[in-house]
Design a protein around this nucleic acid. Structure first.
Lengths: 159, 159
DNA sequence: CCCAGATGTTTCAGTACGCAACTATTCAGC
DNA sequence: GCTGAATAGTTGCGTACTGAAACATCTGGG
């Protein structure tokens, strides 16, 4: 059991600013997206995934995998999206346990209608606020964090 | 109505990495904190605020203000924290509409017990993953975002 | 004074999510 | 083939949050 040093001033500054900025930014983007698309960002992400998939179709478990989320969330979310008419479910012939989520024409239309406003929002509150150099730095930083989080994802600090 | 240009490759890369990294990081920190302190980050933040306030006391509306959250969340949260014995409520003499939330000794103890593990977690998944230079860059970036979000906070992209 | 509007807080209804328990299907080993 | 373990997905319950409406109290203009 080793002693972990407290954060110094600079680390403290970065951590506090990052924590707050992140929360406020995500809140803002969520609001904008809700207004533009009538759905939360997580649902939007599902539609994006489906729109980019061959046949506009993905298996539930694939959706769970690519969104890094639990199966139950996919069930709930696809249920809602189905109710909205944006997604349709089809049984999977090759594996009778499985289901396909298929993006409907209405879903694609909703996505295309919302996308410009979404981009606008990301620009207005993130990209255009920063210098091109900072955008690039943020990319590097995020990728480094991702690498850590995705690889040693099972490791917890002390335990 | 002006055309907003789509994101170029570099912007796209940063935005996608940032979005995912942020979500995964926050999830991880939330889990760690839940394990260390038995409470969500937002409750932890309330205890921190109270611990730093004179008399370990703040008004409900102040808590809402400093956490950038809605009043109803404070009511719920303080209710839970009160149940846990970490916070006590006192009526406010000078304004009979108001209530004070007071951090109890147990609350302070819980906070002090959880803090080292929390710091450890922030180090392990954020600070120590980055170079000191990147930590500093992230601080600058976050502060720039904060400045934007806090000032023009009422402005939405197109509307 | 007193009443209208502002402010502080709670309550209620509704959303998104995780966890744990469950059903149904597939697969591996014998 | 058959049985037991792994996998796919759903369901139900509990938690944290929001927005709107309700309610109490305060404040300022007549």
């Amino acid at each position: 059991m080793t002693e972990t040093p407290w954060l110094d001033d600079e680390e403290q500054r970065s951590w506090r600013a990052f924590g707050l900025a992140t929360r406020l930014l995500l809140d803002r983007l969520e609001r904008d997206l809700q207004e533009a698309a009538g759905m939360p960002p997580t649902y939007y992400e599902l539609l994006v995934l489906l729109s980019e998939a061959p046949g506009r179709t993905m298996r539930m478990s694939e959706l769970a995998h690519w969104t890094h989320s639990k199966p139950s969330r996919i069930t709930h979310a696809i249920g809602k999206l189905e109710q909205a008419g944006w997604v349709r479910r089809e049984p999977l012939a090759s594996d009778r346990r499985g289901w396909l989520a298929v993006l409907t024409d209405e879903g694609l239309a909703a996505l295309r209608a919302a996308a410009p406003r979404h981009v606008e929002s990301v620009r207005a509150h993130l990209i255009d606020v920063l210098s091109p150099e900072q955008v690039s730095q943020l990319g590097d930083i995020s990728e480094k964090l991702l690498e850590h989080l995705l690889s040693g994802s099972t490791a917890r600090p002390s335990a």
